[in-house]
Every structure is written in C-alpha cells, then in structure tokens.
Computed example of a mutant assay.
Amino acid sequence: MTTRLAFISDIHGNEEALKAVLEDISKRSIDFQHVYALGDIVGYGPKPNEAIALLQRHGIRSVLGNYDEAVGFFLPTCGCHITSKEDQARVQNALNWTARYTTESNKAFLRELEEQIILEIEGWRILLNHASPFSINDYVYEKDEEKQEEIALEIEEDMIVHGHTHYPYYKQVKGKWFINPGSVGRPKDGDPRACYCIVGLEQQPTVEFVRVLYDVEKVAKEIEASELLDVFAQILRQGKDIK
C-alpha cells in the first residue's frame, strides 16, 4: 500500500482554516503521524495560540518559519524582503500583535521547532524546511529554475518540501522533486480556500493539491475586531495580497 503524506504550511494564526484542513485529512484516512507542517504557524491571523494547540493536540511535527522565529525569539522583524513603507507597516503590525498575544509557553514551543526535518520513508529521502535550505526567508517560486537548480545540486535528498511563498506547485529539477503545498491560512493565488497537499510515495511521487472550504468571514471579522490591520481581513476574503 502506498504511503501517503500530508503537508501543510503557512497557517498564520488561522485556527478555522487549520481545523478544516485537519478534518479533511482525517476523512482521507491519513494518519496524523504522516502530517507535517512547514512553518509560519503564527503571524497575521487572530488565533496564534489556538493554531499551536491544534498542532500539539494532533502530534504534528513542524519546522520553524520566519514568523515563528521572530515571535519565539523576540526578534524586531520577521526578516522578510520588504521594499515599501506600507508593507513594512503591515508586517510590523502583524508581528507586534502576534508577539503580544502569543503566550510565553507557546513562544518557548516555537523556539524548540527544528529548522529542517529529514524523512526517510519507502526509499525516499525528503527534506522539509520553511523556505529553502539556504535561508528561512528565501522565496522559491515555481518559475525560479536557476535557484531550484542550485538547491538540487546542493541537497542529497530526493525531494524538498517547502512553504513561505503561499503558492502551491510541484516540479522536478535536476532529478529532485520540489513541492510547495501552498498556504492553509493565508493563500495568495486568488483562491480563499485553505490549501494543502497529499503526496503518495510511489516510483514517481503523486501530488494532489486539496482546497478546503472554511468560514473565511468569521476569521475576517475576528481580525477586524482586533488591533490587527483590517487589510488582513480583506486579504483572506480575496485569497490574495492587496497592494
């Protein structure tokens, strides 16, 4: 029987989206020991503590994301590549609010997250990290062939699964498989549904991206009722960044 793994990423404090995804995974008879999170559990969303609690309750391993790092280690910035003053203000609002409302025990949990996880399953060696093996803030989009070739030549594993961009894709470069499951809690590709992926470990991996409906409006209103910027609610409603 083919082993199936589920990968989730970029939850960003969106408890409702995460609950819906975990329920969907359970319905597909995937054991939670085969579910892995790729970081950015917190940031932007109104329920950082609840999102962490859900992962803990189900025993789901996660790597460290850049927002997790900033909140857990009391950093002044998330390290994102920001050019405009508007984007900088948004990031600082999300980071400051999340750092204020995340409990000390959950900050300690974030500090304990691994930067990378290496899996060896069914003859496959799989590298999990948040952004790239080179940096926790390195954006690797589907079109970034040159960067993917550099990574492929550097890593020993057969497959790399990463998040950070919030855009789902999979492709093979230089004999290595690159998979990004998209974002559970803050999609950017115009589809507001939560996104994750299921990978079947066959001779060639099968990759299925799954979109899950959840109560986006409930989360948007929770954001608007908080000190988080209202634009974060609009981003959820539209499923993409708003400039």
Results as ranks from 00 to 15, higher is better:
M1K: 12
M1G: 14
T2C: 10
T2M: 14
L5A: 02
S9C: 07
S9H: 09
S9K: 07
N14C: 10
E16F: 10
K19H: 08
A20Q: 10
L22W: 10
K27W: 05
D31N: 15
A37Y: 11
L38M: 13
L38T: 13
G39Y: 07
G39C: 09
V42F: 07
P48Y: 06
I52D: 03
H58W: 13
V63D: 01
A70M: 03
V71W: 07
G72L: 04
G79Q: 10
H81F: 09
H81S: 13
D87T: 07
R100W: 12
A108M: 02
R111L: 12
E112T: 13
E114D: 14
E115C: 05
L119K: 04
L119W: 09
E122W: 06
L127M: 08
D138N: 09
Y139C: 09
D144Q: 09
K147N: 07
E149A: 14
A152F: 01
L153N: 15
I155D: 04
E156Q: 15
D158L: 02
D158K: 06
M159I: 15
M159Q: 06
V161S: 02
G163R: 08
G163H: 12
P168V: 02
K174G: 01
K176A: 06
G182M: 11
V184T: 08
P187L: 10
D189Y: 13
D191G: 14
R193A: 14
C197I: 07
I198D: 00
L201H: 02
E202S: 12
P205F: 06
P205I: 09
T206F: 01
R211I: 04
V212K: 06
E217W: 05
E217D: 14
A225N: 15
S226C: 02
L228Y: 07
L229G: 00
F232V: 00
A233C: 03
Q234H: 11
L236F: 03
L236K: 03
